[in-house]
Nucleic acid binder design. Structure first.
Length: 312
DNA sequence: GTCGTACACAGCTTTACATCA
DNA sequence: TATGATGTAAAGCTGTGTACG
C-alpha cells in the first residue's frame, strides 16, 4: 500500500520573519520553514514569511530528552507505555510476523537492536527471522509496506515528537504490530525526508534571493552610470552641493544625509524621487524593504547595532 | 583525564515494491 | 498481459557525538 505525499501531511511554507528575534538557538537561519503537518497551517502567501523554525520541526537530539519527558503524558493519546501491549501484538511478534501485511524484513543490523530490554531483543531476533527459514536462508530481503493506518499513527506520533525514546518506540511498535527497529527506522527516514524538504525550500528561497539581488545589482549599476554621466556635465557641478559629511549606519550600512540647510536644500538636484516607486529589495535582517535612496533626507529608523548579533 | 562500550542519530546507499508507459 | 524504466520507501551500513562506568 502506498502512502502518497498527501498522506504524509506535510505542509510546506516558506516565509521571512519580520524580526529574527524568534530564533531559539545559534543554528537558526533567517530562512525558516514550517514543515509541520498540516494541522498547524501557516500562510504561504508571502514568499518571505516564516512561521516555525526549523529547529522546532527538527529538534536537535539534545532536546529530545526534554521532549521525552513530556511525551509520556499522553503518548499518542491511547498508548499507555506502562501497560502491557495487546496480546495479539505479542502473538504476532512471537510468531515472527511483524505486521499484518508484512512478510519478512532482513536481519537487523549488527548493533541496531541491542535494546536494554532483553525480551525486546529476543522479539527482535525472532521476528527478524521472518516467516520461513528458506527465505532467510537465501538472504532475500522482502520489504514491508506500512499500511495507511500504520503510517497515520506514525505520522501522528512524529507530529508530537520526531524522536523516540526506547519506551515510546516499544509501545508504538506493539501498538502497530511492528518491530521496534521498524519504528526506529521509520522515524529516521521520516526525519531525513523532512530535512530533504527543508533543503529544497532553502534552495528555492536562495534562488529567489539571488534573482532579486541580481535585478537590484543591475539597477544600481545603471544608476551609477547615470550618476557618472551627470558628473561629467558642468551644469551638474554648478548645481551640486559641496560634499558634506555623510554618516553611515553601522548596522544597516545605509547612508544618511546631514540635516538640510536652508541654502543647499533649495538648490540641490533631486537625484531620485522622495517616494521611490521601484520595487524594493528585501534585505535579511531589515524589518521592511529598504528604499534605495542613498541621499535620503528622512531620518533612518535603525536598530541598535547589537541587534544584528543577538538573536534572542 | 582517558579509555572502552553502548547507544542514537545523520548521511548515504541498497533494495524491494508500486506505478506507468 | 508482459516488461522495462522510474520513483518511493524500508532497511542496511558507516561515521560521529554523547553518556556512562
Amino acid at each position: 500500500m502506498v502512502v502518497d505525499k498527501e498522506d504524509l501531511g506535510l505542509s510546506l511554507s516558506l516565509s521571512f520573519p519580520e524580526k529574527r528575534a524568534t530564533a531559539t538557538n545559534s543554528s537558526s537561519s533567517p530562512l525558516q520553514l514550517n514543515l509541520m503537518p498540516s494541522a498547524s497551517p501557516s500562510p504561504f502567501g508571502h514568499l518571505l514569511q516564516q512561521k516555525s523554525s526549523w529547529t522546532d520541526t527538527l529538534p536537535p537530539s539534545d532536546r529530545s530528552m526534554d521532549a521525552c519527558r513530556v511525551e509520556t503524558r499522553a503518548f499518542l493519546k491511547g498508548i499507555d507505555v506502562n501497560r502491557l501491549p495487546a496480546a495479539t501484538a505479542d502473538a504476532e511478534e512471537e510468531a515472527g510476523v511483524s505486521s499484518p501485511n508484512s512478510t519478512i524484513s532482513s536481519i537487523s543490523g549488527k548493533r541496531s537492536e541491542r535494546e536494554a530490554n532483553g525480551e525486546d531483543h529476543e522479539l527482535e531476533r525472532a521476528s527478524s527471522r521472518g516467516i520461513s527459514d528458506e527465505e532467510d536462508g537465501d538472504n532475500s530481503r522482502k520489504k514491508l509496506r506500512l499500511s495507511k493506518d500504520q503510517s497515520a499513527v506514525l505520522e501522528e506520533s512524529f507530529k508530537e515528537h520526531n524522536t523516540l525514546n526506547p519506551k515510546q518506540k516499544l509501545a508504538l511498535a506493539k501498538r502497530l504490530g511492528l518491530r521496534p527497529r521498524q519504528v526506529e527506522v521509520w522515524f529516521q527516514n521520516r526525519r531525513a525526508r523532512t530535512k530533504l524538504k527543508q533543503t529544497e525550500v532553502d534552495c528555492e528561497y536562495l534562488k529567489r534571493c539571488c534573482e532579486s539581488l541580481t535585478v537590484e545589482n543591475r539597477r544600481l549599476q545603471k544608476e551609477v552610470q547615470e550618476l557618472r554621466a551627470l558628473k561629467l556635465s558642468p551644469q551638474f557641478y554648478m548645481q551640486m552641493t559641496p560634499p558634506t559629511t555623510l554618516t553611515m549606519c553601522p548596522s544597516c550600512e545605509r547612508v544618511g544625509a546631514p540635516p538640510p540647510s536652508s541654502s543647499s536644500s533649495s538648490t540641490a538636484v533631486p537625484i531620485s524621487t522622495p517616494v521611490d516607486p521601484r520595487p524594493r529589495a528585501l534585505v535579511p535582517g531589515h524589518p521592511r524593504p529598504i528604499p534605495f535612496n542613498p541621499w535620503a533626507t528622512t531620518p533612518i529608523q535603525h536598530r541598535p547595532f547589537d541587534a544584528l548579533h543577538t538573536r534572542s
